[in-house]
Structure formats: structure tokens, C-alpha cells
Amino acid sequence: MALAFVLVFLGISTPLYSQDANDPFETMNRRVHGVNIALDKSIVRPVSFAYVGNVNDGLRQMINNFAENLSVPGDIVNNVLQGEFQSGLQNTGKFLINSTLGFAGLGTPAEDLGIGGDESDFGATLHRWGVGEGFYVELPLFGPSTSRDATGKLVDWVLNPLAPLIEPPVNYYTTSSTIAKAMDMRVAYAGAIDSVLYDSIDSYSQSKLIYLQTRRFSLGGRDEDVYDDPYEDLYGTE
């Protein structure tokens, strides 16, 4: 099934970078955006604030570390698939140290020792392999993505080396720690997120612009073309 998804999504992918977002499903995306805003307003935001307000900093940090540690094997797989062996090795060391000395990843002794490689995901691997970002898509609950990065998310989930090892009830801890970390982030960046979702004139367009640009920025390889010279071409090509 995953393979079918990959083929479908990659089949309609576009060149690596185009300045304008490719958004053929804007109408549907805007509908999903409306649902996501409603979910945030009624559930995600209030529950996140309640969580952060009621659970102390130290415990939340440990939960975040636990969730973070469980994502490292996925990073390693992608490091290797991208030929980033140095990062893969560093991340392997980090995972081993934090899982043992750090008590199942609750602590982060590896970071204190300066051990650790780049975070990565299968969307980034596809990018490295020359796959374009495809079309823009806003996913329910997960928010902004592209066809390539959404495919990547799915593959990451399937490829997760820990998945076959984890059985109930342990997988409840892993899932809930990931959700808890997301809630913590929702509050940590509340100012910026609220201003985009609730104060901007067109929050759909702003979320899209911000996602695509930060994603391209983190994937690297942007060239000088991202820096237009408005003195030369003030009104664009509209």
C-alpha cells in the first residue's frame, strides 16, 4: 500500500524548486485548513496550555527527551539513505548512550558529550535523491506539507526500525510522548503560531508560505534566486 502511495505521489511531482507553490488542490486544502483551525481552537490549543500549566518543566522535558530519542533510529535510517554516514554514526552513538545511560532516553547524556548527528526524515531523503516537492497539501491535524513530504511521513512510519519491536502497552507510551511533545511545542511557540493562525489576514496562504520556505531552508541548497532584487523588478511578473 505504501508503495502505491509513493508511486502515485512521485508520479505527479514537480522540479526541485519553483518560486510559486504548486497548489492544484487549494479549494480542498482550504477546507482542511478550516477544520485544522477549528481543531486547534477547540481542542489542541486549550489542552496544550492545560498540559503545560499542570505538568512541571522537568517532567515535560523528560517526556520530550523520551519522544525525541525514539525518533533517532528513523534519523539514522535516513542519514544512511542520504549517504550521511558521519551523521548516521553520531546518531547511532547518541541513541545507544541516551537509551542506556539516559534511562530509555529520559535524559540526554549524549548531547552533554557533544554526540549527535542531523535530524532527518524520508521527505529529505527523497529531496536528496532529486525528487521535487510536488504539490502543496494541508493534512488534517498534521498541517502543512507537500506530496513529497507527506509521502515521506508515511514511509518514515513504515520504515521505523523500532516499530516491530514495540508492542502494547509500550507503544502507548511512545505515541503519547510524541503527542505530549507536540503540545509542549504548541505552547512554546504560541506567540508565533497564534499570530499566523489567528491574526493574519489569510492564514491559509501564510501557513503555506511559511511551511514551504522553512522546509526549503532546512533542506539546504537554496541559491541566490531566493533573494529577488525588488529594485529591479518591483512589481513582479503578475
Binding site: 493574519s200 489576514i201 489569510d202 496562504s205 501564510q206 508560505l209 511559511i210 520556505q213 522553512t214 526549503r216 531552508f217 532546512s218 537554496r222 531566493v226 533573494y227 529577488d228 525588488p230 529594485y231 513582479g236
Partner: peptide
């Protein structure tokens, strides 16, 4: 004349906002 914060282009964001308004 422009600021990029983690790759986010201020001019582009504002053109989208003012365009929407």
C-alpha cells in the same frame, strides 16, 4: 529592504497578506 527569518521572506509574506486584504 527585506528580512529572511529561517528562510521566510518578509516581503513575500506581506505581499500575500496585503494581496489577500
Amino acid at each position: 529592504f527585506n528580512i529572511f527569518i529561517e528562510g521566510i521572506n518578509m516581503l513575500l509574506s506581506e505581499r500575500a497578506e496585503i494581496g489577500a486584504l
